[in-house]
C-alpha cells in the first residue's frame, strides 16, 4: 500500500474553503468568540465574489472595529465617532460608481451618530450601512449602549438598565425602515453557519441594490460580546439567542417593492 502524502490531495479541484483574498494576513485583535471577525470575513468574501475590490471604499467607525482597515485589503477611511455615514455620503456623491459601505457598532451608529445615521438614510444615499449590534460598548470596556437590553448590567448600568432613568433599547433598523430613503433593511446574525449564509445573501442583495442606485441599504448584525457580557463564547451566543433575538428579531424589515 502506497504511503499517504497530504500534498497529493492539495489540488484546486479539492478546495473546499480558503481565506478570502480580500482579507489580509494580519492577526485580528478581536476577543475569542466575538462576531466581528466573522462579519469581516463574510463582507470580504462578498467583495471578492462580486469583484468589487478595485471599486470599494469602506468607512470604519470608532469602537472595537476601528482597526478594520488592518484586516480588509481595500481602500478605507477611518471616521470620527458616529460620523461614518457623513463621510460615506460625500464619497458616494463624489464617486458614484464606487461601492461604498460603513461598518459601525451600536455606540457609534445609535448614540453619537444618530443624526448622521437618520439623515443619511433619509436622503437615501446609495450606500450600505453595516451595523453590528451587541448591546454594549466593547472597546471602552463594557459601558451601557443605546441598544443595551432592559435589566442588562454594564459598567455604567451596574444595577441593570432601568427604562425610567436610562431609556429603552433603540431599535435602529425599525427606525430607519420608516424612512423613504432606505430600500432594504434587514437583521441578521453570524453565530451559526446558517446565519452567516443568510448574511452573505443579504450583503449580495445590498451590492445589487447599490449598483442600481436604489437607496440606502441597512443591514444589522445582532452579535455578541463575550468579554464584556462576562460569558464564555458559547454561553454568550446562547444568551444572545434567548435575550437579544426577542428584542431584535432576525429577518427582513423592509425589502424593495416587487422583491
Amino acid at each position: 500500500m502506497a504511503e499517504f502524502n497530504p500534498k497529493d490531495i492539495i489540488k484546486p479541484e479539492n478546495l473546499v474553503y480558503r481565506k478570502s483574498k480580500v482579507l489580509t494576513d494580519n492577526v485580528m485583535h478581536y476577543c475569542p468568540g466575538c462576531g466581528h471577525g466573522t462579519a469581516h470575513r463574510t463582507l470580504a468574501e462578498v467583495i471578492e465574489e462580486e469583484e468589487l475590490q478595485s471599486r470599494t471604499i469602506g468607512i470604519t467607525p470608532v469602537g472595537c472595529s476601528v482597526l478594520m482597515y488592518n484586516y480588509l485589503d481595500i481602500d478605507m477611511q477611518e471616521a470620527a465617532h458616529g460620523r461614518a455615514p457623513a463621510l460615506a455620503t460625500a464619497v458616494k456623491r463624489l464617486m458614484p460608481d464606487r461601492f461604498v459601505f460603513t461598518y459601525q457598532g451600536d455606540g457609534d451608529l445609535a448614540a453619537i451618530g444618530t443624526a448622521e445615521t437618520i439623515h443619511t438614510c433619509n436622503r437615501g444615499e446609495n450606500i450600505l450601512i453595516l451595523f453590528v449590534n451587541n448591546g454594549i460598548y466593547g472597546m471602552t470596556g463594557g459601558q451601557m449602549a443605546p441598544t443595551t437590553l432592559l435589566g442588562m448590567k454594564s459598567s455604567t448600568s451596574p444595577y441593570g438598565r432601568d427604562a425610567a432613568t436610562m431609556g429603552s433599547p433603540v431599535k435602529m433598523a425599525d427606525l430607519v425602515a420608516l424612512l423613504p430613503g432606505t430600500c432594504y433593511v434587514t437583521r441578521q446574525s453570524v453565530h451559526t453557519a446558517a446565519g452567516v449564509r443568510k448574511l452573505k445573501k443579504a450583503l449580495k442583495k445590498a451590492v445589487e441594490y447599490q449598483n442600481k442606485n436604489m437607496g440606502t441599504c441597512f443591514i444589522e448584525v445582532v452579535s455578541n460580546c463575550p468579554s464584556n457580557w462576562k460569558m464564555t463564547p458559547v454561553a454568550a451566543n446562547k444568551w444572545m439567542e434567548e435575550n437579544m433575538f426577542p428584542a431584535y428579531p432576525l429577518g427582513d424589515i423592509k425589502v424593495p417593492a416587487g422583491e
Binding site: Q77, A86, L87, T89, A90, V91, E116
Partner: peptide, 14 residues
C-alpha cells in the same frame, strides 16, 4: 455643521 465637515473629510480622503 458636524455632518458637513465630516462630508468634507470623506471627500478629501478621496
Amino acid at each position: 455643521e458636524v455632518a458637513a465637515i465630516n462630508m468634507v473629510y470623506g471627500g478629501a480622503a478621496c
